[in-house]
Design a binder for these strands. Sequence first.
DNA 1: TACGGCGTTGTAATCGATTCCACGAGGAGG
DNA 2: CCTCCTCGTGGAATCGATTACAACGCCGTA
Lengths: 344, 344
Amino acid sequence: MASIKDVAAEAGVSVATVSRVLNDHPSVSADARARVLAAVEALGYRPNAVARSLRTDQTRTLGLVISDVMNPYFTELARSVEEEARALGYSVIIGNADERPDLQDHHVRTLLDRRIDGLLVSPTDGGSPLMLDAARAGTPMVFVDRWIPGVDVPVVRADGRAAVQDLVAHLHRLGHRRLAIIAGPAATTTGSERVEAFREALGACGIDLPDVYIGQGDFQAESGRRVTEGFLDLPEPPEVVFAADNLMALGALDAVRARGLRVPDDIALAAFDDIPWFVHTDPPITAIAQPTGELGRAAVRALVDRIEGRAPRSVTLPARLVVRRSCGEDGHDGENSARNRSQS
Amino acid sequence: MASIKDVAAEAGVSVATVSRVLNDHPSVSADARARVLAAVEALGYRPNAVARSLRTDQTRTLGLVISDVMNPYFTELARSVEEEARALGYSVIIGNADERPDLQDHHVRTLLDRRIDGLLVSPTDGGSPLMLDAARAGTPMVFVDRWIPGVDVPVVRADGRAAVQDLVAHLHRLGHRRLAIIAGPAATTTGSERVEAFREALGACGIDLPDVYIGQGDFQAESGRRVTEGFLDLPEPPEVVFAADNLMALGALDAVRARGLRVPDDIALAAFDDIPWFVHTDPPITAIAQPTGELGRAAVRALVDRIEGRAPRSVTLPARLVVRRSCGEDGHDGENSARNRSQS
DNA sequence: TACGGCGTTGTAATCGATTCCACGAGGAGG
DNA sequence: CCTCCTCGTGGAATCGATTACAACGCCGTA
C-alpha cells in the first residue's frame, strides 16, 4: 500500500508538502498542490490512519460499550450514536458486554489500548475499577442510559418516573390491584430505579409492593420467564406483571403462554422500553418508550464536547407511556375492542 | 499515559528489554523480567496498540460491514462474529450500511484507512468499485450471507433452496395456490436468489409466479408495507405473502392489519429469517431459519485462515423451515387450533 | 591463559504520518 | 542597491512501539 513517501516521490516534492496538501494547510503553491493531488489519484493513496493517530495522539474514534446488542433498545441506541458521531467526523467502535462485567472490562480495556478519544458506556455493574480509574485519569467519558453514582461523569438518560406513574394510573383505572415487577440487576441504575419508580407510583395509588411481587431478573428473556413462573406459582398471583425491559417481557410472555393463560384476560403485561415488535405481539404490548435516538445523539454531543474542550452537560429526557392492549381495554383502540371485551 | 520509555526508566532497563518481556521473548533474565513486570504494575502501563500496529503492520482487528444493524438477523450475526473473533484474539469494528451503497463505501473506506487485518462484508449492492479494488489489491476478505458474483472471495452463507421447497410444499398442502413474494433488492444475491428459489419451488408444484405477484422491496419494513398494500389492491390478491426478510414481514403484517384483515384467515404470511419475536407475533410467523451463529463463526474462521496464510474455504449451510400458524393450520400446534379452525 | 559460544542487554533503525525550524527566492520600502 | 518580510519548501525530530545487530560478561575447554 502506497505511503506518503511514494506520493512525495511521484509528485516530486517532500513529504512535508504532501502532508500539507492533505491537511489543507494554507501555505502550499497551487502548482505543488495540483501535482500532489495528481500523484494521490494516480497511486490511489489513502493516508494511514494508524500512523496519523500515533503522531497526533487522536484517533477520531469513540468507544461505545453497551450491555447487550441483541436488545433492540441498545441496537437502536448504537445506531443513533454512530449516526451522530459520523456527522461530527468520528467513528464508533461498539463493544457488547452481554450483561457480563468481565466482558465489559475486556472491551473497555481494548478500547483504551486503542487510544479511542472518548468512551460512551452503559455500565453493566456498579463500578468496574478499570472504568473508574480511566474516568479519574481523564479519559473523556459519558454514561448513557445507565450510570454509576458518585462518579464525576456526565449522564445522558431517560427519566421514566412520570411514565411509570401514568402506567400505574392506567392499570389502577383498569381495576388492577395486585401488581408485580420483574426487576433488573440491582447493580444497575435502571435496575433499581425502575423498581423505586414503580413502588412510588403504587404508593400514590395506595397500593403496596410486597417483596414476593418483586422478581429478580437480569435483563435477559430467560430471567423474565423464570420470574414470571414464580409469580404464577404464588398462592395469590399478581394481576399485572411489569417487566423492567423488553427482553424480560418476551420471557414473561413465554411463561404465560406455556401455562395456557392469556394476556390480558388472565394476566396483564407491560414493559419498559418500547420496540417495533410490541405492536405485533399477541396482544400488542403496553410499554414505556424512551426517546432512544435523541438519547444516543445527545450522548455523542456531550462526549464530543468533552473531547474538544467544551463543557459537557448531563441530559435527562422524559420517557412516555404507550398504551396498547396487554393490560386490558382502556376505552381507546378501535377495531378489536368489542371482541376482546366480550371474551373477558 | 505512561509509555514504554517510562516503564524502562522505572525498571532501570532499556525499552528493548521491556518490549521483550511484554512479548515474552525467551532471552530475558528472570531478574529483568521481574523488575519490568513490577514497573508495569506500578505505572499501570498498557502498551499503545496504535504504535504497535504501526510497527508490526497488523491491527488484530476485523472489519464487519453489515447491511442493517436494526435487523435482528444481522445483529445476531454481528454478535457471533465478535464472539468467534474474540476467541481467536481479534477485535471487530462494525460498520452499518443501512442498505445504502454510499454508507457501505464510507465504512469500507474508513476500515481500510484503519488498516484492519481483514474484512467481512454482506454487500448492499452488486459491486462497489472500492470493495472490488480492495479485494484485488489483496485485502483479506470474506463475504457473509450476501456476496458478489465473479469476485474471487470466499463466501459463507446459508442455502435456503430446500427450506423454500418445504415452505411451498407446506403452503400447497394447505390449499394455497396464489402465492406472492416480497423480494429484496435485485442487486443483492439474497434478493434475487430467494425469488428464484421460490419460483422453482412453485414450478415443482405446477404453480406459476406471475410478475404482479413479485413485489420489489428493499429489506426494510416500510417497503414490506407498501408492497403488501399493492398486493391487496390487486383484482385477485394473493392468498400467501412470502417476505424475503423479517423486517419486510413486519411491514406486511402492518399493512394487513391496517386493512382490518387477519392472518392467516384472510391472507397467509411467511418470512425468510427467523427471529425470536416471530414466536410472539399475532399469529406466530412461519419462517425459514438460518443457522446464523454458525454462519458468523464460520465466516470469521475463514477470514482468519486467509489472514494467517492458510487457505480459506467457502461454506454453505442449510436453512430450515419453522412452521408456525401464520399460514394456517397444518395439523400440529395444540392449544389454539380449534378456535382458529372454527373461524375459517 | 586464551578463545569460542551462549545468554542477556542496549543502541539504533524503522513503521507513516505531522510539524517545527531554517532556508532561499522574490517583492516592497528606504 | 540593500534590507526586511513573506511565502513556499524541505530537512529532520517526533509519536511509541518492535527488532536486527552489536557488544558485553561469563563459562567451559583446549
